[in-house]
């Protein structure tokens, strides 16, 4: 908590003069003491914490595209995804379905089991440990959050150059080719979550806003246990337990981005 307090004060330094509290802030920063009279910021008490959030999707539990709908709908609704966009060129997708040879183009054997070949798989941002999109961004508008490894977007900062879209090997990013607000279903809105504006890139945020208040991501909640979520670097996490017991694959692992979304096939 001490460090977050300092961080806020450092930030506050930008406008401290304007706030008229500069001397007090400086004195506080210098003394490093505990002064209850100064404002500070912290994580919520119920916030879930991890070194690197990760996801295991047990695809054995899903049999048809219909089985995937609850998760996709939960996400769309939770994040005000403009699903009414009919022009597929302009689609916004955070989590969606793809056939095996699209989701795993380098792993599609010539003769796949019939079940796998025609099944739908959930695909989303992989929240890579070495994200190439973050490397490409010229403003740090997309960044890997140090506290929990989520690859996030700062929509306030994005200039819409779309370099991250070229850099992402998973097609996980969407661009707002027009104002998305007209395309959000009226009765399927989450009023407590912002929409986006035209001209910025967006993608799955691993439900950072839900983790902050102690909830698991919307798709995990809607999956009835078929998607397991947890800390990749906690050897006792549910995710690690599942990874220990099951053979899993990841999308385009050979590119070295280290995706954090695993699939049990």
């Amino acid at each position: 908590m001490e460090s977050s307090r300092r961080r806020f004060l450092k930030l506050a330094g930008i406008s401290a003069v304007g706030l008229g509290t500069a001397p007090a802030l400086n004195a506080f920063a210098a003394s490093g003491g505990h002064d209850a009279a100064q404002p500070y910021v912290k994580k919520g008490a119920r916030a879930l914490r991890a070194k690197q959030w990760a996801m295991v999707i047990d695809t054995r539990r899903f049999h048809s595209a219909k089985d995937l709908e609850p998760m996709i709908e939960a996400c769309n609704k939770s994040h005000n995804i403009p699903t009414k966009i009919t022009n597929t060129d302009h689609e916004i997708k955070w989590i969606w379905e793809a056939e095996f040879h699209h989701a795993f183009p380098t792993k599609a054997s010539k003769f796949l089991s019939e079940e796998i070949e025609h099944k739908s798989f959930l695909v989303l941002c992989n929240h890579c440990e070495n994200p190439s999109c973050v490397r490409a961004c010229p403003t740090k508008a997309t960044f890997k959050r140090e506290s929990d490894g989520i690859v996030l977007m700062d929509f306030h900062r994005c200039i819409g150059c779309r370099f991250c879209m070229a850099a992402c090997p998973f097609g996980a990013r969407s661009f707002n080719f027009r104002d998305p607000r007209d395309f959000i279903p009226e009765d399927d809105k989450n009023l407590e979550f912002p929409t986006r504006m035209k001209g910025v890139v967006e993608k799955c945020n691993f439900c950072a806003e839900r983790l902050a208040v102690g909830k698991e991501p919307a798709c995990v909640e809607a999956s009835d246990g078929a998607i397991i979520f947890g800390d990749l670097y906690d050897p006792h996490s549910h995710v690690r337990e599942v990874l220990k017991e099951n053979y899993t694959i990841r999308r385009k692992q050979q590119l070295g981005t280290e995706p954090s979304v695993y699939y049990i096939v």
Partner: peptide, 10 residues
């Protein structure tokens, strides 16, 4: 950017 969402006033 910092995942710190609670502001504690003076």
């Amino acid at each position: 950017r910092n995942a710190e969402r609670i502001y504690v006033g003076a």
